[in-house]
């Protein structure tokens, strides 16, 4: 009975983690380029009370044995890097990645972070920076007298200066890809950090060999679907409920035993 109680408690804790994750997903339904989280569960150790194939008291081979599980645990939480919807904003420095890849951001201290949020701005020097002021890497500089900025799908940045007819090239925005993006470490503020399990960053030209294209004047929305999250929330709540019922039933049965004497 005590085992059943602990087993149910593990189920309740797992569902609690599930609800925490769903809450974070729903809270970020309006965060540009947010990628929803998913928690994975796995069953806990099995208690083998009788080996399959063991001889029973009646001198017969036992066909199945008796293995009873002891509950569940959260095995991992991963980010689902599924494409979010693209929304047109009209701002020439809003860049959305359609497909796989990240922008590389320099923190200014020699470290780099990666993000898919392409809401870029220009700082006082004309450098392209994130909303938080971190520079895009490799850096692109826009001259102060630029009248028009054109970012092609392959990341080429061109500007029209003064009254010139021809566009002037200012460099190319590159995308970074990882073997296992789910292994990246989310650091808040839409930034991701490379880890041993994400693999080393590979820089690519947008659109080349599996890398995504850039779309100017678009932003990628969060890939959270509120309906899906609400369904998952209801499921988690019900699962929590049935597990708490197990504890109640175990308790009632224990009570019955203690009443016998």
């Amino acid at each position: 009975m005590i085992r059943a109680m602990r087993t149910a408690a593990s189920g309740m804790m797992a569902q609690q983690t599930q609800v925490d994750t769903i809450a974070n997903n729903i809270a970020n339904v309006n965060t540009a380029s947010f990628k929803k989280n998913r928690v994975n569960f796995r069953s806990l150790l099995y208690a083998t009370l009788r080996e399959p194939g063991a001889t029973t008291v009646a001198n017969q081979m036992n066909p199945t044995g008796l293995q009873i599980g002891t509950g569940t645990e959260v095995s991992s939480s991963i980010k689902l890097f599924l494409q979010g919807d693209l929304e047109q904003t009209g701002n020439p420095l809003d860049l959305a990645i359609q497909g796989d890849g990240f922008f590389r951001i320099s923190l200014g201290n020699g470290e780099f972070r990666y993000m898919r949020d392409g809401a870029f701005r220009m700082d006082g020097n004309g450098d392209i920076v994130t909303v938080d002021g971190f520079k895009l890497e490799p850096g692109i500089n826009i001259p102060p007298d630029a009248q028009e900025i054109v970012v092609a799908q392959d990341g080429t940045v061109q500007v029209r200066v003064g009254g010139e007819d021809l566009l002037q090239s200012r460099g190319q925005i590159r995308l970074t890809r990882f073997a296992n993006p789910s292994g990246l470490r989310a650091e808040g503020a839409n930034l991701f950090r490379e880890t041993a399990s994400s693999g080393a960053p590979t820089e690519q030209t947008p659109g080349d060999d599996g890398a995504g294209f850039l779309r100017q004047a678009f932003l990628e929305r969060s890939n959270v679907s509120v309906v899906d999250e609400l369904i998952a929330l209801i499921q988690a709540q019900r699962n929590y409920e049935v597990n708490s019922r197990t504890i109640q039933v175990s308790d009632e049965m224990l009570q019955q035993v203690s009443n016998l004497i």
Partner: peptide
């Protein structure tokens, strides 16, 4: 009673794993 207790243990494990892939 001991047998029913084991059955409850097993049911508890099933319920704890309704979300396990």
């Amino acid at each position: 009673m001991a047998s029913q207790q084991r059955q409850l243990d097993s049911i508890a494990a099933n319920l704890a794993n309704v979300g396990t892939t």
